[in-house]
Write a protein that binds this DNA or RNA. Structure first.
Lengths: 234, 234
DNA sequence: CGTGTGATTGACGCCTGTCAACGTCTGTGG
DNA sequence: CCACAGACGTTGACAGGCGTCAATCACACG
């Protein structure tokens, strides 16, 4: 949202960023606006932690959040990213369970926090909204299933090639042509379920093969077609 | 379910088997009973296929269904089982997507089929039911995330030990003490994401170590504690 | 009794995880 | 401005887990 010149009042974000909330009636939207809290979060900040009780849901207006589970000896497993338009934490709220993932900011983010009671009221009273949420959850479930297949059946090499293509598509590119999402090698490893060193080796292999170019955390896809072939996608 | 008093039609199953339908009002339950179709399915029969349009959801009254995705060169990846009380196919119906899995009968099953329109009407009109369904979907999403962590970070050996414990717990045991769910070695492999031969080798290893006993597809857990340790669960 | 599916076992080797050492960069504090 | 610490990236060496291929066995079924 824009601020009034000079005075920084309007650090409130536009609820229309979040598609699923389009289904709300004007009154309901106002209710949300009234009850929500806006926050600016910097890279590295935690949004919530695995196994904690979540008392509300977070709407992402900008930036990127990673959702991950913590495994043996603290190794993270990223299960999903959330960007503008997504909401996180709703799973725990709606299923009345503890958070099954942690959420951490990857790219500075603007989020608004909507208390549990508000969300649940909306679900109970507005069936169109409820249906939209359900559709979202079901879609995510489909993604998760696809993810399981990939990790279970593909080699690390294939998974890395595929994830590069997916991330490039989902988050777009910066002006310089590099992928907009910047991950550490470790985060890439935690995403495809492998060791950091393996990611490094495979990335430089792709680089030598001229499939991609590297510059720090910036990755540019040069030969997407060939990456596709490596990824074994049909 | 009984129809007219006295006359009992045996090929109709009790809707109360499915917990989420408890939220329905009497009228709505009757609507479901009136519109549903009962089926007996034998091991090996397909319920629906991946990438097909699903026109309704299936309620499982007895038996076991496996849900799986088909990967490269046809290798199956099992993502979930469904048993008495579960419903399958609802994900595609509610998200208006093609089926992201195939469903196949593992243990002879009694299912009833409820057309899409009926399910959607219920969701739109009964918010308590809708909430219950949502809760179910969200819970499944949590399961899927946990599964991703397991496959990504654990060794085949650990995954096998863990899945044996989980299946034993979820499906119970027969009179002879063997796990109630009988899977082929290949299905076990498709569940934990490995090769059939690896499952065979590890099973006989567990057997030699006296953690389990084997007799065809019957598996009995002898030393669950030690399996737990192998599984690396905390 | 032939046929087919599933279970086993052995051989082989590559992919990948682990360990260790080192290089690079950034921010901090003296 | 430099030194230092700490996070991140890179490279090499090495072993072993696990996938693949192939042959054989076990068992059910028409």
């Amino acid at each position: 949202m824009k601020k009034n010149q000079g005075e920084i009042v309007h650090d409130e974000f536009d609820i229309r960023d979040i598609e699923v909330f389009h289904k709300l009636l004007p009154d309901e939207q106002h209710e949300v606006l009234y009850r929500r809290t806006c926050k600016n979060l910097k890279r590295g900040e935690m949004v919530y932690r695995e196994n904690s009780k979540i008392s509300g849901t977070y709407l992402i207006h900008s930036g990127i959040i990673k959702l991950f589970k913590t495994g043996i000896d603290g190794k993270e497993q990223i299960v999903r990213f959330a960007k503008r338009g997504n909401i996180v934490g709703y799973r725990s709220v709606l299923s009345d369970e503890l958070a099954c993932t942690s959420a951490k900011v990857i790219k500075d983010a603007e989020v608004s926090y909507v208390p549990e009671s508000v969300l649940k009221n909306l679900v109970m009273n507005n069936s169109r909204f409820s249906m939209a949420l359900m559709r979202m959850a079901c879609h995510e479930l489909g993604d998760a299933n696809a993810y399981i297949l990939n990790i279970a059946q593909k080699t690390v090499r294939e998974r890395l090639a595929e994830i590069l293509i997916l991330l490039d598509k989902e988050f777009g590119r910066d002006d310089d042509g590099s992928m907009s999402i910047k991950l550490t090698r470790e985060e890439l490893a935690n995403l495809i379920g492998t060791a950091t060193e393996s990611v490094i080796r495979l990335l430089s292999e792709f680089k030598n093969d001229r499939y991609i170019s590297l510059s720090g955390r910036n990755i540019r896809l040069i030969e997407e077609k060939k990456l596709q072939r490596v990824a074994n996608v049909f």
